[in-house]
Amino acid sequence: MITLLHDYQASRARLFKEYKEVQREKSADPDIQLVCDDSNIFKWTALIKGPSETPYEGGVFQLAFSIPEQYPLLPPQVRFLTKIFHPNVHFKTGEICLDILKNAWSPAWTLQSVCRAIIALMAHPEPDSPLNCDSGNLLRSGDIRGYYSMARMYTRLAAMPKKG
């Protein structure tokens, strides 16, 4: 009866449940495609669609998940692999500044719901806690057009299939 529970066993078990859920609900959220690494359940990637009515619309962005052994007590590490111009995403590393990935994390979140939160962040940037200061400054100075055109440009350059 005594379960000798180790972190990585607990996190593997949990990730396996998430994997099954993702397989089952594949069509439920057409904006998110979560894929587990073939050989390592602690590595995932996701493709998310840029939300409509934002400069990211029409783009497909790749995220890399690295999951700690203490998951889900600790949050997954997530970063953008696709270049994106957004106040809360580091322009070079793709690091994301989002509270639920740091101090507001709880095991009630899942990889899937983290993707949803990131899509929400794309639609609602928070320029007051910028990782990309150029982007944050454009928004904070009220230069919506400047922000929009930069974000749009990088969406076209990096997140959309090349035409012809």
Partner: peptide
């Protein structure tokens, strides 16, 4: 300075009508 570089980059990469580009963005 930033504004002009932003404007320059947007000019390069967005196919907006020229009239709009000349507006001082900042």
């Amino acid at each position: 300075m930033e504004a002009s570089s932003v404007a320059a980059m947007t000019t390069m990469n967005m196919n907006q009508p020229a009239a709009e580009e000349s507006e001082p963005i900042l």
